[in-house]
Amino acid sequence: MVATDTFAQFARRMSSTQGYPYIIIAVTPNPIRQLEPDALRPRAEAMLQTVIDGLTLPPAEIERRLKDVARQQIRPQGVVRSSVPV
């Protein structure tokens, strides 16, 4: 998954509701909507290795790397109630 940093925790919660709490998220600083293609390209290149990791690492390794991060992003203190199980 690719997201800007502002919305990474939302992305984690969304993936969690779909059964993927430990998905690797490639993050780039927000905002990006104003960026021209020349400025976007280095942002994309900077995320490439993370994307490759997400596609190639064994699930157990991904889970090991992300367990603490995922817990904090999905259920930080004061997280909203939700009818969507997260």
Binding site: F7, T17, V79, S82, S83, V86
Partner: peptide, 14 residues
């Protein structure tokens, strides 16, 4: 919209 669409703020709704 919340319960079926899942749009309670903080998860899908930003």
């Amino acid at each position: 919209l919340y319960n079926v669409g899942g749009a309670l703020p903080g998860v899908y709704s930003k």
